[in-house]
């Protein structure tokens, strides 16, 4: 069964949680490295979602 693709808001919430983690005082370096990579991946994904949405709007505008 294919997992449901996460929405922009869900991904953004995950990113916010990671940032909150970084801003907390008790930060472990190994954990930080892992979470940093996760956050960077999330940002890439979010940017892709924005680009996709922009493309959809452009296509609709051409049709109208």
């Amino acid at each position: 069964m294919a997992t449901k693709e996460k929405t922009y808001t869900e991904l953004k919430n995950e990113l916010d949680e990671l940032l909150d983690w970084f801003e907390s005082s008790d930060v472990d370096v190994d954990e930080a490295l892992k979470k940093y990579d996760e956050a960077a991946k999330l940002i890439t994904e979010l940017e892709k979602k924005l680009a996709d949405a922009e493309l959809v709007v452009k296509k609709l505008a051409k049709k109208a």
Binding site: Y8, F22, V29, A32, L33, A39, I43, E47
Partner: peptide
Amino acid sequence: ILIERRDLRRISELLAAFNP
């Protein structure tokens, strides 16, 4: 989209500061 991009850029910069 513009607002969201700006936000993501801000988060990226913030994240860079946390990069071990």
